[in-house]
Nucleic acid binder design. Structure first.
Lengths: 333, 333
DNA sequence: CCGTTTCAGTGAACCGGTTCAGAAGGCCGC
DNA sequence: GCGGCCTTCTGAACCGGTTCACTGAAACGG
């Protein structure tokens, strides 16, 4: 085990400048001291190679400079991008992200939330699997919690970045209707308990409004299973003329199914996705999909949590609107 | 700003049990105390809702339980998967990853490495942009450093997970030769300073050995530019019969180029990638590519760094071998 | 039976900052 | 000339654990 080089402490800087440790502490943070003293302290600190010890600072001040990021599942491209973006964005604000993955297990999610609190993160960004869990209100009282995707029920969390999924559904279905489709199949990850994608309710309402005949089908997790399910659904004589998938990866399964069945996209069946995965532009044909502006979401979430941590009053709730990326999987070449 | 609920300290547990704080500290870690005392202490701790304070522990013991992960660029799918995997793997060992992104800037990389050291991470996993930087030897002396992808020059880092890229090149080129190709174009991200993908040197040597005529072309960063470059390269009369891309995303650009030019894959031109991005199996046609077993790499790196931190003697160097995923982009349907 | 180990537990120092109450000095107005 | 206020700085407590040197007692060995 390598030996850590001993670094200068604040007391040594104090000794070098003839000041008290307290004065040095203040001076280094630029408060409660004269310009001249600050200058002198900085010089001495540089001289000695002094660097603040974040751990000691955290213990004394109660803030760690770390923000917990609790993800439902990092398997998911979407959450992965979010995690990476948030990590970068926090770093730009001199904070670190502690990224943690619940592996799609709500129990584990709650355990990890506690664990992060015990790690003394300054705040928490969470895209919850189970926003109604009783832990959230409790947690929100002891540290700033910002939720992404859906408000945490019951707890008045300190911030929310909400996706307007209804708008996303509307965009996709209107697009399909405008292209003349009447019979649309909707493939959704799960029907219930995906609070951020309330497919069943809103899809049916919108379909009614637009005069569409929809059939909602649950897609399994894996690509292979999704492909099978799509093959079954597209084989019958009452094949829909368009498929709306509630995630791009489901759409990939549909693409695979069309290959199996020898169907042309969009000639025999139009396909519309949800997420705008970068890969979706590269498929043959490129996939029409609902785009979510990840950067904007990241920015909102980080800004919310940081402002709450810093005690700045902030708008508590940000709603992000999706847009539709129209490509050839619905319009043809 | 929400008020943090005050939690029980070790001294309160000591008071409750009539022991000294030191005894409680020992008992909770199961050392230096009798079974019976440990039991009593645990009971009292549960009673009081005591949870260890990681920050205080870190300050006193000098270990934070955090491992820094320094990535060259999280833009890259490859590094993103690695980061996510490492983060999960560390979590499973009760440690946290501090993920940090250098945005492809070697200077920033070094600054971040220092910053992580100052954050007192217990160890560092790094996929360096610049393994020859003079900082590495210095850093390796003050904390465990494990490099992924290429050994850190000069510094005897505490561990290395090395990719056998030569083997990857060999696999791909042999595969193409076996299919009868003679004129192969190689698309590589950059010629120099990609130590983990020493394309130019080894490609030429292997091509010679296999009797292939290769042309090495540098692919730009973005997909659009890559597509343009590929269009230019594939348009001329001396079009190669196969393209070997040093990353799957470059291959995506080649796919786009073949669409522009109306070329059939693999009929007019066979394409082989490198990385085995999950999406590559979904393209039309599915992409033949060199696969790297990310889980294995993750596991090796985490194991190395954790063992060094824990002072366990370990094999210092692990070499990972790639395998070839043969799909239709070279063999046809 | 007495000297030597081992074991369980104690007290105090320590990790390296922050923060609070208070003191010294300078400046102000009256 | 004096009370009051502001600025700058100090001393000491504190954050909440860990660890080291040491003690008393029990176990052990010859």
């Amino acid at each position: 085990m390598p030996e850590r080089r001993k670094r200068a402490t604040i007391r040594e800087v104090a000794q070098a400048t003839g000041l008290s440790p307290a004065a040095v502490s203040y001076a280094l943070r630029g408060i409660q001291t004269s310009e001249e003293t600050q200058e002198r302290v900085r010089a001495a600190a540089d001289e000695l190679g002094y660097e603040a010890h974040p751990i000691a600072r955290a213990l004394a001040s109660g803030r760690t400079g770390m923000v917990g990021l609790l993800c439902g599942s990092l398997e998911d491209y979407w959450q992965q991008s979010l995690a990476v973006g948030i990590s970068r964005s926090l770093l730009a604000r001199d904070r670190y992200a502690l990224i943690v993955d619940a592996f799609n297990d709500p129990d584990r999610e709650l355990a990890l939330a506690r664990q992060l609190r015990d790690q003394r993160v300054d705040g928490l960004i969470v895209q919850s699997l189970d926003p109604s869990a009783p832990l959230w209100p409790e947690l929100s009282e002891s540290l700033p919690v910002v939720s992404i995707g859906d408000a945490l029920h019951g707890g008045r969390s300190q911030g929310e970045v909400v996706f307007d999924n209804r708008r996303g559904v509307t965009l996709a279905l209107e697009h399909l209707r405008d292209l003349g489709h009447r019979r649309v199949m909707v493939l959704t990850p799960t029907l219930d308990s995906t609070p951020d994608r309330p497919a069943d309710v809103h899809v049916n309402a919108e379909a009614e409004r637009l005069g569409l005949e929809v059939r909602v089908v649950v897609a399994p997790q894996s690509l292979a299973e999704t492909t099978e399910a799509a093959v079954r659904a597209l084989r019958g004589p009452d094949r829909p003329s368009a498929v709306f998938c509630f995630s791009d990866s489901i759409a990939y399964g549909v693409y695979a199914a069309t290959r199996v069945l020898g169907l042309a996209v969009p000639g025999d069946v139009a396909v519309c996705g949800y997420d705008n995965h970068p890969m979706s532009a590269l498929l043959t044909p490129p996939l029409t999909t609902v785009d979510w502006d990840i950067d904007g979401i990241v920015h909102s979430a980080v800004r919310l949590v940081v402002d709450v941590i810093d005690g700045k009053p902030r708008k508590r709730r940000v709603v992000r609107e999706p847009s539709l990326r129209v490509r050839e999987s619905t319009t043809g070449a």
